[in-house]
Amino acid sequence: MGEGNKKVAFNVGGAIVGALLAAVAIFGLIAQQGSITQPQKFSQNIDYNQQ
């Protein structure tokens, strides 16, 4: 592969990786928003863990 092609490959690859990471970040943020639950209600049992 020539120097020019290598440069293009790296730049395009970098752009694709950047776009993919941005998509995953947005996906993660949406998942986080969806996971925010209402305040826990009063419960008769208080446990150290959750199953």
């Binding site: 730049n11 990786v17 943020l29």
Partner: peptide, 20 residues
């Protein structure tokens, strides 16, 4: 600059995979 920019984007993977 470009090489550093791509490397910096890759370096952000911990933030991206743990936004919570």
């Amino acid at each position: 600059a470009m090489a550093l920019g791509v490397a910096a984007i890759v370096a952000l993977w911990p933030l991206i995979t743990l936004t919570g």
